[in-house]
Each structure stands twice: as structure tokens, then as C-alpha cells.
Design a binder for these strands. Structure first.
Lengths: 127, 127
DNA sequence: TTTTTATTACGAAAATTTTCGTAATGGCCG
DNA sequence: CGGCCATTACGAAAATTTTCGTAATAAAAA
């Protein structure tokens, strides 16, 4: 897999990556159908983006007859990690703590999930 | 203060907002000096951005002689909250939980901070 | 008052991202 | 085979974001 240090997917590219991560591999048609559920987007627009991502080596492509199967070349967690770091820096001036506090305070997290987070914290503390 | 529902500061605008939030109010010169500490940026570039932000009503301006004092018109927490929501959706498909787990696992959070987070969780649970 | 200096105003260029029209391709059905 | 259909290829336009050169302005200094 790719070393991700310098790559920053654009917003649209990230949307496509999400679909690819969920489906494993997909055609342009499938990706476009998925995106169309939540927004207006033309087939050729999606196609073009995926071609650009291919050039950037964010995805790979396998040709089967006339159909092209695309796969993400960057891992979901690694990408999230990378974007998270950027986001913390830009939005919370580097304070991961602040981000966590605000998320817990204002986003939707269930009781079970809170329990799970507590466990994670303890496992970190006891390391 | 502004209703923030539809405004999305660009990356550069957010950098400027960070400076304004920290200084309370500032001149273009001050903001540019601050930004220059971490990146190359021309005075007129910063000026132009701040003028654009004025048009968008993201900041306000007070003229004192020839100097213009700028202030953020959007609140820090509110903006962070808004950007956080977008980020969770785009990067973690809406799962705040996943974001918190990854942050705790991989970003730098001190023991004291972990304690504080635990306390917050408990206060949420006991509510 | 004249000059210098620091600032803001303006507009356009550059860079990046997103969108889409049109053509080319290749397989499938009649 | 010949026309149709779904797909990909290509290139340019549109939209957004970022950068900066140059001019105008006003205060301060000489």
C-alpha cells in the first residue's frame, strides 16, 4: 500500500474512497449510483474523478472486458488518521484533547459507546 | 453572532480565524506576522483574504485612523462544532465514536487529559 | 510642504477542484 | 453484418480558492 504522507484527497475524492472502501471494488457505474443517492452528480464527473485518482495512484484499476474495476490503494484507517491529524491542527490548533471533548459533548455517542471509550482509555493508561 | 449553518471557511480563512480568535482583534499586519511564523505568505495575500472574509461577514472591521482592526464574527466553538460535524460525516461516515477511538489511539493525549475525558464521560452518563 | 513609510484597495493571474459535452470503443442483439 | 447501448477517453469550461503586482491613500517624519 501507498505511503500516504503527502497525499490529500479532495472532498470529492474522499466520497469516492468511502464507496470503494465499503464495496471493496466497484465500477464507475456502481460508485456513481451510490453517490447519486445523496447528491446530484453526472456519470462522467465521477468517471473523471476516478481517472484522476488513478493517475495519482489513489486507486488501482482492473480491466475485465470493457468494464473497469476500481479498488482503493490507500487504506481507510491510514487515510482517516492522516486527515484527522490535519483536521486537529487546522481546527483545534493541534489539541486532540479539545476535539475529543467537543465530540463527546456535542455529537451523538451512545452509552455503550461511552463505556467502550472508557475501556480504551483504561487500556491506554495501563500500558 | 452569525448563524453558521451554511458557511464553510476555506483552509486559509480558518487559519486567519485562528489568529483572530487568539488575539481577539488584530490588524492585517498582525495576522500576517502570525501566519508568517509557520508559512510563506505575502501581506497582500492575507489582506485580500481578510477583505473577502469581511464581504462574507465572517469578520467585522473597525477603522481607527488608517489602521483596520478585524474581529471574528463567528464563534470559535460554534465553528469547530460545525466543521467537526462535516468532518465526521466525510471522513468517518458519521461515526463520532470511530473518530474518538482513533484519536485516543493515535494522537497525543496525556494521562491527565485522559483522566479529564473519563470524568466528562461519567458526567454525561450520570445525566 | 515635501518626502517617506506603512497601510489598504483593486483587479487580475495562477492554481486547484469540479463539472460535463462530445467522441471513441467494444460488445450484444436483431 | 449493422445498429444500438453502456461504457470509457479526452479535453475544455466553470467554479472556487489562493496569490500577488500595482496603485491609491493617509499619517508621520523631515
Amino acid at each position: 500500500m501507498k505511503n500516504y504522507s503527502e497525499i490529500k484527497p479532495t472532498d470529492s475524492e474522499l466520497e469516492i474512497l468511502q464507496v470503494l472502501w465499503q464495496l471493496g471494488k466497484a465500477t464507475v457505474r456502481q460508485v456513481n449510483d451510490e453517490l447519486s443517492k445523496t447528491k446530484d452528480v453526472g456519470y462522467t464527473t465521477t468517471l473523471k474523478l476516478m481517472q484522476i485518482m488513478l493517475e495519482k495512484n489513489i486507486v488501482s484499476r482492473l480491466e475485465d472486458g470493457r468494464v473497469h474495476w476500481y479498488t482503493a490503494l490507500v487504506e481507510e484507517e491510514q487515510t482517516q488518521q492522516f486527515l484527522l491529524g490535519k483536521f486537529v491542527d487546522a481546527t483545534f490548533r493541534g489539541s486532540a484533547m479539545k476535539l475529543v471533548m467537543q465530540t463527546l459533548g456535542n455529537q451523538t455517542v451512545s452509552k455503550d459507546e461511552l463505556e467502550e471509550i472508557k475501556k480504551l482509555i483504561e487500556s491506554i493508561e495501563n500500558k
